[in-house]
Simulated assay, not measured.
Amino acid sequence: MTFIKAKDFTADRAWGALDIANMNGVTTRLHWTDKPYKWHINDGEEVFVVLDGEVHMHYRVDGKEHIQLMTVGDIFYAAIGTEHVAHPISEARILVIEKEGSV
């Protein structure tokens, strides 16, 4: 049994992670960041939950870029093939659930 205070988690680099669980090849990780990630397309589905801070989620639909502000408690589901990149506003803590080894 493990209890984690997400608000207290920090990493030594942007997008550093704490591995919480691996359930039959699906990982749950807590990320800390203060910098954008990179545009990517996961090779599986992804659930992205803002636990602390705010994030601008950039995503493309039919080649057109959109931006959605995400605040604490907001959830982004990326289906296979969803091109996206997260841009935190200052520091953010994010829970990511995805296939093991995904980008």
Rank of each mutant, 00 (worst) to 15 (best):
T2W: 08
T2Y: 08
A6M: 10
A6C: 10
K7M: 09
D8Y: 01
D8W: 01
F9L: 04
F9T: 02
T10H: 05
D12W: 09
A14V: 01
A14C: 04
W15P: 05
W15H: 04
W15V: 01
G16Y: 08
G16T: 00
A17Y: 07
L18E: 12
N22L: 01
N24A: 06
G25M: 02
G25N: 11
V26G: 01
L30V: 03
T33I: 08
T33S: 15
K38T: 08
D43T: 10
G44I: 04
V50H: 05
V50S: 04
V50R: 02
M57H: 13
H58N: 13
Y59S: 03
K64H: 07
E65D: 05
I67H: 00
Q68T: 12
L69R: 12
L69K: 14
M70D: 00
T71V: 14
V72E: 15
I75D: 03
F76I: 12
Y77D: 05
G81C: 04
T82G: 09
H87W: 03
H87L: 07
H87N: 12
I89M: 12
I89H: 12
E91F: 09
A92F: 00
R93F: 09
R93P: 12
I94K: 05
L95H: 02
I97G: 01
K99R: 08
E100F: 03
S102W: 05
V103M: 10
V103P: 10
